[in-house]
Design a protein around this nucleic acid. Structure first.
Lengths: 333, 333
DNA sequence: ACTGGAATCTGGAACGTTCCAGATTCGTTC
DNA sequence: GAACGAATCTGGAACGTTCCAGATTCCAGT
């Protein structure tokens, strides 16, 4: 069974149809103003009649540029990633650039493959929203095209720009909020020991020190099935918890419901990332907002500068904000 | 300030470096077995030394095929869309096809533009996960390449395949579950009057009729700020509510907490879509699962068949399942 | 009517790959 | 050591566009 779809018309078919040269068709379609009004109309009509659509691939080949950038995220289902990607995408659209979105699905090898594939597709720059892509892979990519990394507070080669939320000050904001409510025994919970989590713990400890209070070690609570750890935390002495991310905070919230340690009456809980989830759970979660859209926008502006020729590294840090909702309150007793 | 990045090496550079013809380089890189082992190694080494990466754009131009498909979704932030997209993507990867993901951001014009752009990029097929793309746009696209639509229970031209969850039987499942728990007064809430919502209401009414119970009109509750409508619903006589989607169900859950009509004690609530959210709220939400991954997988298999030459339309319906969690229970008193 | 310059149009080269037909080399067999 | 087929390699054409240098047409001014 063979595909009967007609061969896709080319600029040459349109030229024949309109009775002009292919070059003129090209000019007319691109709106060049060396084409007389009458022939332009004739050409457009011919193109329309044939259902012509310009072949981006051929254009990209001859121009050596595609007008596309690549965006690689760890996991699209994670709202943090998808919203940063959205910010990049919007800003790219405004800058007249198209976006190829690649989803790594938490697999470092797949992400490395995506890097290759995007470079193969001649993207003009790469935005990496992931801490899982190997630095060596990034460095190799950066030899070929501009690369900007979002949300990775670590040392990167000079060819690579980066923008990240300020994790220390984000954690600070949360702690200051809890302290101002009157909490004195504040815990820090995390399911990860990645650099971002460590930075947040540093901010947490520093803010407590500034308030003359004592910081605790980070409590490791696995997100799925960490009920034992969660129970210990919820039933321990702390009247408030700062969680390394919203997902974990929500698990604590829910476990609290189950064992009768309900927020915000018995315990105050602060999340991190201000994802969609935070606004939808009960009680609605107070959370640190990384300004994802700003992250994305900044990433794109850095990329544009690189594409335009900047060579010096740029490191940007975005100050987070705190969104206060209903999961935090004055401690009772 | 000019960009000092070196010109990207081509197959010809590699050929010169290895002292062979460009054709042989092409063969060697593609793993053709008409190349002797020693020269293959020499060529690969040369390629490696120059940091050569094959130019997909040039290959696509000459082969007339890109090995890519396009996936257009209404809104990536909506977990339903992103998970269907994920299903498509996984299946495509298994089939050796790459995926371009385009995010419509709820704008019909943008989505139409994405269709054009993807066709321009010579994708071999299009999966549309959106009920917002104009049918005329789809029909025009389908003249040029295979198009599969996911989750749109409406009449489409023969060139276009479709796969959708069975909304009537999904609603049925939910109602049967509630009836079996002993509920007799069951409401249906929706924020939309799109075809899917109407089909779900039909299923709801039919299931109630089968049980000898009375169906009510769909109650319109806006998702944001619909507290008046929500209050009426929660305080009305119904002991159970089937909601047209998880988002709305969660709003009802939360509003219930606020006014003391708590699920599942005072009211049972069932969502639709079984999104991530359903598993994370308190109480965890019973929800109809559309089997998003199956939707995506089926969409891709239909697309592959079309690419291979099938011309007859295929319409597929996926039977949903019910995931019972903690928001439904036997009615009290 | 003739000129010169502007306006409009054209043909071929180029982009980096694959594909094809054929050229060259190699090893075996007589 | 000649002949032959298999193994290995090569050069040019093609893909559909843009770009460039130049060709042609048109028109105003003399």
């Amino acid at each position: 069974m063979s595909n009967d779809r007609p061969r896709r018309p080319t600029i040459i078919d349109v030229a024949a149809e309109a009775g002009v040269s292919k070059s003129l068709v090209s000019l007319a379609l691109r709106g060049d103003d060396g084409v007389s009004e009458t022939t332009r109309r004739r050409i457009l009509a011919a193109a329309d009649r044939l259902g012509y659509r310009s072949n981006t691939v051929a254009r990209a080949l001859v121009q050596g540029r595609t007008g596309q950038i690549g965006v690689i995220v760890t996991d699209l289902r994670n709202p943090y990633h998808s919203e940063v990607a959205l910010g990049v995408e919007k800003a790219a659209e405004d800058a007249g650039l198209g976006t190829f979105l690649a989803n790594g699905r938490r697999d470092a090898d797949r992400m490395a493959a995506h890097v290759d594939s995007l470079i193969g597709h001649n993207v003009e720059g790469l935005v990496v929203v992931s801490s899982r892509v190997d630095t060596a892979v990034l460095a190799a990519a950066a030899e070929r095209l501009p690369v900007v990394v979002v949300g990775r507070p670590e040392i990167l080669p000079d060819r690579i720009d980066s923008v990240a939320g300020d994790d220390e000050s984000g954690a600070r904001l949360a702690v200051e909020h809890l302290v101002s409510l009157g909490h004195t025994d504040i815990a820090f919970a995390s399911a990860s020991t990645r650099p971002a989590a460590r930075a947040r713990h540093r901010g947490y400890a520093a803010a407590l020190a500034d308030a003359g209070l004592e910081a605790a070690e980070a409590v490791a609570v696995p997100i799925e099935g960490g009920t034992g750890e969660a129970d210990d935390l919820l039933r321990g002495g702390a009247t408030a918890v700062l969680s390394n991310n919203d997902l974990l905070a929500v698990e604590l919230l829910n476990r609290g419901h189950e064992i009768g340690v309900v927020a915000p009456d018995r315990i105050s809980i602060v999340g991190y990332d201000n994802t969609e989830l935070a606004a939808r759970v009960w009680p609605r979660l107070t959370s640190v907002d990384q300004r994802r859209t700003a992250l994305g926008r900044t990433a794109l502006s850095m990329l544009s500068e690189r594409i335009a020729g900047r060579t010096a590294a740029r490191r940007e840090v975005i100050a987070p904000g705190l969104v206060v909702r209903d999961s935090t309150a004055t401690p009772k007793e």
